[in-house]
């Protein structure tokens, strides 16, 4: 009887030790998928998804707490890549893409307070103290951070106008 107890305890000790070692040396730090997903996000920390930043959003998506369609600047393209990575199926045709917009500074109202350009995550606003600010429309992601802080409400979020280069035919299935 003692013999059997000894063997089992010994086995238990050895296996426990092995598991302990494995846990120490073969540990996986964080969710490997998380890193990949973080890499896919725009990284502008704009907060349009409702999470404090892109990393938090990536974590929520990786854990399945948020839908893959959460990122407005990423659009349909990002949603599709995320869905592919996570192996979830989404119906993109039902995803209404948020109309892309850009910030426009009304120059007659701007007082040059520099509040907006300090907050811009992509440095899309140029200007200086007591200088009228301007926006590089190409660099603006439409995150509305500047829109919220402007004391004179001189920033307007305008839809990005279609050009011959960006216009394309609507889906005939929806048009009909």
């Amino acid at each position: 009887m003692i013999f059997a107890v000894l063997i089992l305890s010994l086995l238990g000790l050895i296996m426990g030790a092995l598991l302990g070692i494995a846990a120490r040396y073969l540990a996986v730090e964080g969710n490997p998928l998380l890193k990949e997903i973080e890499g896919l996000f725009p990284g502008s920390q704009c907060g349009q998804c409702g999470y404090p930043g892109c990393n938090a959003a990536a974590e929520a998506v990786a854990n399945g707490q948020a839908p893959v369609t959460l990122c407005p600047p990423g659009g349909k393209g990002l949603a599709e890549t995320l869905a592919g990575k996570l192996g979830v199926s989404i119906d993109l045709s039902s995803v209404e893409e948020k109309e892309p917009r850009f910030a426009f500074v009304h120059e007659n109202l701007c007082i040059g307070c520099t509040k907006c350009l300090k907050r811009c995550p992509t440095d899309a606003i140029i200007g200086g103290p007591r200088q009228i600010h301007g926006v590089f429309a190409e660099a603006c992601t439409g995150c509305e951070k500047c829109f919220e802080v402007c004391p004179t409400e001189c920033i307007e979020m305008r839809p990005i106008p279609a050009t011959l280069q960006t216009w394309y035919w609507p889906n005939p299935a929806k048009a009909a």
């Binding site: 502008s44 600047p73 393209g77 990002l78 440095d123 960006t166």
Partner: peptide, 18 residues
């Protein structure tokens, strides 16, 4: 989508620089 992806890469570059 290609344009959006390109813009996203640019955004990332700008955000990192900032």
């Amino acid at each position: 989508r290609q344009r959006a992806r390109h813009k996203q890469l640019e955004t990332k570059r700008l955000a990192e620089a900032r």
